[in-house]
C-alpha cells in the first residue's frame, strides 16, 4: 500500500532550545502502519495478560483476589494433578478420589471440607498434602518462588519427622492405623516429601514445627529419638523446632499452614486442618484453604492461627503478627 505524502513525516513540536525550534532526531518517520502495529501489540498484550493493575499486592482492597494469585493457584493444582497421576504405590480408586474430592473442588473454591470415615478421608487429605509438598519442592528447586513459610501446628511434633525417611515405626501407631496400608502410606510418603522440603538450603525457606507443651512426652521412645535426630540434622537446614507454651491446640487449628510468596509478590496460602494420626477418630472432617491471603476465609483462618500462636509464645510475621521473627 502506498503511503499518503501527508503522513510520511511527522514532526514533533520543539522544546528546550533557545530558538524554540528543534529538529526531531532520526528516526523520525512514523507511518500509520507503525502506529497500528504498535497499538495492536499493546492491545494483544492487554487482552492476553489483563490490564496489570490488579497485580499490585499492596494496592488491593481486602478480599480481592489478584489475577496473578489465581493463575498461580490454578497452575499448582495442575501440577499436583500431574503428580497424582504418577504417585507411586497408590490404587486407582484413591488417585481418583484425590482428584474428585480435593483437586477439582479446589479449582473453583478457596475452602473445602472433606468428610467421612477416617480410613477413607485420611489417604485423600494427607496424600494430597504430600503431593503439595512435592510440588513446592520442585518450585523451590527451580527458584519459581520467592519465599516459603511452612508451619506445622499440631499437639505432637510433626508426625513424618518422628519416623525415619521412607519407613514407619508401625508399633508406635494405633492398631487401626497399623493394620491399614493406605493410612500407613500417608505417613511413609510424607517422611520423604517433608524431609525433601526441609532439605532446601535456600534462606527463603523455613519449616516450623510448633507443638504443644508436653508433645514429645506423648511420643514413643523410637519416635522421640527420631524427632530429636531430625531437629539436629544438618541436612535439614530449613527445619525450625518451636515448642509452644500452650497445653494443647484447639482441634479447629490443628494442621499445617504454608504461605508462599511468588516471584511477582503474590501471596498464596495452602492450609490444612485435621487431626494427627494418633488422635484419629472414626469420622473425620478435614478442611483445606487454598488461595490468595486476602480472600476473606483464608485471612480469617490466618488471623485465628496467628492469635493462637502469639498467645502460645510464637510470633510468625508471615501470618500477619508483629514482633521478632522466629
Amino acid at each position: 500500500m502506498k503511503q499518503k505524502p501527508d503522513n510520511k513525516i511527522l514532526k514533533e513540536p520543539s522544546e528546550g532550545t533557545e530558538e524554540g525550534t528543534k529538529t526531531v532526531p532520526a528516526p523520525s518517520v512514523v507511518s500509520r502502519r507503525h502506529v497500528v502495529a504498535g497499538l495492536s501489540v499493546v492491545m494483544a498484550g492487554t487482552l492476553l495478560t489483563g490490564c496489570g493493575t490488579l497485580i499490585q499486592p499492596g494496592g488491593m482492597a481486602s478480599g480481592e483476589v489478584s489475577t496473578a494469585e489465581e493463575a498461580w493457584r490454578q497452575s499448582l493444582l495442575r501440577e499436583i494433578h500431574d503428580i497424582a497421576r504418577q504417585w507411586p504405590e497408590m490404587d486407582d480408586r484413591t488417585r481418583q478420589q484425590i482428584e474428585d474430592q480435593a483437586i477439582n473442588p479446589l479449582r473453583d473454591n478457596e475452602h473445602i471440607l472433606i468428610a467421612g470415615l477416617d480410613q477413607y478421608t485420611r489417604p485423600v487429605a494427607i496424600e494430597f498434602q504430600a503431593m503439595f509438598e512435592l510440588a513446592l519442592s520442585r518450585r523451590l528447586q527451580h527458584s519459581l518462588v520467592k519465599s516459603v513459610t511452612l508451619i506445622i501446628h499440631t499437639d505432637r511434633p510433626a508426625t513424618p519427622l518422628c519416623h525415619p525417611k521412607g519407613q514407619v515405626f508401625a508399633d508406635a501407631l494405633p492398631e487401626a492405623i497399623r493394620n491399614d496400608t493406605r493410612r500407613l502410606m500417608t505417613i511413609l510418603n510424607r517422611t520423604v516429601t517433608l524431609r525433601s522440603l526441609c532439605s532446601m538450603a535456600q534462606p527463603e525457606f523455613r519449616c516450623i514445627t510448633a507443638w504443644s507443651r508436653g508433645g514429645t512426652g506423648q511420643l514413643a521412645a523410637t519416635e522421640r529419638k527420631m524427632f530429636e535426630q531430625a531437629i539436629a540434622d544438618n541436612s535439614l537446614p530449613g527445619l525450625i523446632n518451636m515448642p509452644l507454651e500452650a497445653a494443647s491446640i484447639p482441634p479447629e487449628l490443628s494442621g499445617a499452614t504454608c504461605i508462599v510468596t511468588g516471584q511477582g509478590g503474590e501471596e498464596i496460602v495452602f492450609a490444612l486442618n485435621g487431626q494427627q494420626v494418633w488422635n484419629s477418630e472414626r469420622n473425620a472432617v478435614w478442611q483445606y484453604w487454598f488461595g490468595g491471603r486476602r480472600h476473606e476465609r483464608i485471612n480469617r483462618h490466618l488471623s485465628r492461627l496467628d492469635h493462637f500462636l502469639q498467645q502460645a509464645g510464637i510470633t510468625v510475621p508471615q501470618l500477619g503478627g508483629r514482633g521478632p521473627a522466629v
Binding site: 497500528v36 497499538l39 492491545m43 490490564c51 493493575t53 480472600h295 476473606e296
Partner: peptide, 29 residues
C-alpha cells in the same frame, strides 16, 4: 481490521479490562 482494532483498544482503555471490572468479592461483604 484497523478500525475494529482501534475501537476495541479505545473501549479497553476507557473501561478497563473485564478481569479488572469483576474482582472476586469477599464473602463477608
Amino acid at each position: 481490521f484497523r478500525v475494529a482494532g482501534l475501537c476495541l483498544l479505545s473501549i479497553i482503555l476507557m473501561t478497563g479490562c473485564a478481569r479488572h471490572q469483576e474482582p472476586i468479592q469477599p464473602v463477608q461483604q
